[in-house]
């Protein structure tokens, strides 16, 4: 997993609620058996005017100039700010993969869909929940200010704006620990292998039908 400590990144506002995983990465790209390369098709149906299929040369695609990610001032953005219920829909981890592969390191929204939220932590993409009013202000400020950046400090659990406004956020301590150190969760769980084996054995005694 990718480590996350701090990021002072360019912000792009996606002023929409209920951004679903089908929009983040359309299904035709889920046919890939690889884990990388999804960034070029992030928000494919919004970013491009032509219909995207796997294997197309991105440089030949018809860009949608109206879509916010395509505007020159947001090139190189690392922080995405969006409205409520970001990442709703399917469990596809391809959605966080695509966001990360595109260059995002953190997503800020008033709320996230559960599975998406969870998936982000597994790859080191940081989802941050801030109050709706704060998110609204961040969206307005980003639109109003060219080159608007935010400083995210995971250890301190804060988002700091150029105005020096500081917005604290919550994060589960275990998840924070894993992110700060870029830990392999499977390795961590396997440290408890004996306990798992013991648990499994008890279960086999009590509910043998689960093991046939």
């Amino acid at each position: 997993m990718k480590k996350f400590e701090r990021c002072h990144g360019l912000v792009v506002p996606l002023d929409r609620a209920n951004v679903d995983t089908d929009a983040i990465i359309p299904k035709q790209f889920l046919k890939s058996i690889k884990r990388s390369g999804f960034g070029q098709n992030l928000f494919d149906e919004w970013r491009f005017l032509d219909h995207g299929e796997p294997g197309m040369d991105a440089s030949q695609r018809q860009i949608n100039p109206d879509f916010i990610l395509n505007q020159a001032r947001y090139q190189g953005a690392q922080i995405l700010v969006a409205r409520d219920n970001f990442g709703c829909g399917s469990s596809r981890e391809h959605a966080p993969w695509a966001l990360q592969d595109y260059g995002f390191v953190a997503i800020i929204a008033p709320s996230f869909a559960d599975i998406f939220f969870n998936n982000c932590f597994k790859i080191g993409l940081l989802p941050i929940v801030l109050e709706a009013a704060v998110v609204d202000k961040l969206i307005q400020d980003t639109i109003a200010t060219n080159g608007y950046r935010l400083l995210i400090d995971l250890a301190a659990q804060t988002v700091t704006a150029a105005s020096n406004d500081v917005y604290p956020f919550e994060i589960d301590p275990f998840r924070k620990h894993c992110l700060l150190n870029g830990l392999d969760e499977i390795g961590l769980t396997l440290q408890h292998a004996d306990k798992i084996r013991q648990f499994e054995e008890n279960r086999r005694q009590q509910q043998p039908w689960l093991f046939t």
């Binding site: 884990r35 596809r92 769980t189």
Partner: peptide
């Protein structure tokens, strides 16, 4: 998600 699929397979 897929990372968790791997996690469940392994553990």
């Amino acid at each position: 998600g897929t990372s968790e699929v791997e996690h469940v397979l392994a553990t």
